[in-house]
């Protein structure tokens, strides 16, 4: 495992912490899973049985923000390598990233001005 490096250890931690709760849950279910009744399987919102399924074409009103997120999130990919070499590269790195960020911030400014963030 050490030969796979620290990421191998991280993977081992991930798998262990993923499997342990599933095992616990399976174990408890196996031990004492009482069958559920039909009224128990009805979602509870105060005592009246729901008329329709809750799964629907949910109108997520922040869709504009979500789509802008797709584009803005990419900026992080560029920032990580930049952060590593920033001190070495000095002022030029500072200026280049400032340019890049300013351009992207213009997008956010535009979005904010168009009031595309608020939805309710």
């Amino acid at each position: 495992m050490t030969l796979l490096g620290p990421l191998g250890v991280a993977l081992a931690v991930f798998v262990a912490a993923l499997v342990a709760p599933l095992l616990l849950r399976g174990f408890i279910d196996n031990l004492a899973r009482a069958p559920t009744t039909v009224p128990q399987r009805m979602p509870f919102v105060g005592g009246v049985a729901p008329e329709v399924h809750a799964w629907n074409r949910y109108h997520a009103r922040y869709y504009t923000m979500a789509l802008v997120f797709l584009a803005f999130d990419m900026e992080m990919v560029f920032m990580y390598p930049w952060a590593v070499v920033f001190v070495r590269e000095g002022v030029s790195a500072f200026v280049e990233m400032a340019m890049f960020i300013t351009v992207l911030l213009l997008g956010v400014l535009y979005m904010w001005r168009e009031r595309a963030l608020a939805w309710a």
């Binding site: 105060g46 005592g47 109108h59």
Partner: peptide, 19 residues
């Protein structure tokens, strides 16, 4: 809908014992 997207409207009865 008021933003022009015709999507699902979920009827929901909340109560009488909604916490």
């Amino acid at each position: 809908d008021r933003d022009g997207l015709r999507l699902d409207v979920l009827p929901l009865t909340v109560g009488p014992f909604f916490t």
